[in-house]
Amino acid sequence: MIDFLNAFVLFSNFVLVPGIAYGAQLALGALGITLLYSILRFANFAHGDLMAFGTMAVILFTWLFQSWGISFGPLPTALLALPFGIAITAILVLLTDRFVYRHYREIKAVPIRMVMASVGVMFLMNGLVRFIIGPNDQNFMDGERFIIKARAFKNATGLNEGLALKSSQALTIIVAIILVSALFWFLNRTRTGKSMRAFSDNEDLALLSGISPQKVVTVTWIIAAALATVAGVLYGLDKSFKPFTYFQLLLPMFAAAIVGGVGHPVGAILGGFVVAFSEVTVTYAYKKLFTYLLPADYAPEGLLQLLSTDYKFAVSFIILVVVLLVRPTGLLKGKVI
């Protein structure tokens, strides 16, 4: 029984909790991709670098606040800086929309041209981020690091295994829940949100109903920028900030959006967790877990790791391929935002 409990705690500590936090971070990013897809009708390749830019803006504000001696008690100062970072990021995306994407909308270019333009924007943003903050790791977490420390947990429960709950993980989950609820409320209950859904559903009819496309597009960009910034900051607090890592998040986020069904917000969230849990469970070494669960004689020898962590991006890719082969429309059907 104790072995079983130990195994459960071990599993929670290394798979469940990190998986939930990572899933929530991916889900927020994938939501942005899916929203942009359903309104602007292209896959935004600049999304990873948008996250990087937003996070960078927040980090700069965090440093500024820290230099002024402002802190947020036990919570990371980055939370205070978040609104400012979102504002800067929103301005940036609106500028790219004005000077890049709007042109292609006006000439009714094929979607792949928009995708291509977004690749151009991706490199521009990538360069901008590296230019301003450099290509290296930045750690900007301050405040309390842990809500539950592994040692305290061990002492309190008397188990061999400890369960650590990082404050960044708890924060991720709370912020994600708040943000997603707010987003769904906005889409389903407000006039602007409904007009976004209408626009995504049937653009021509939306125009005939007097919905202003420019307004819908603007609001969508602002939401996507906010989601990307928050997702990036949460990821950065949880792990660390490095521009190239954020660029690499693009693939899991696309996979998440496609798994759930592109254009489907619930699908994006579902997809985020599917991708995150696949990644974590496939790259986790199960040796210790089975040592607890199996009788001593059967204790495994190898690491029992399905795939080395270097291949975690392969997991999202495999998921993507399976979905494209088996069910290209994604898990949830119907294109609605």
Partner: peptide
């Protein structure tokens, strides 16, 4: 499939 899926798939395979 949709035209952007090829872009996403090629991005993925090159990283892998």
């Amino acid at each position: 499939l949709r035209s952007d899926y090829l872009a996403i798939a090629t991005l993925g395979i090159s990283e892998i």
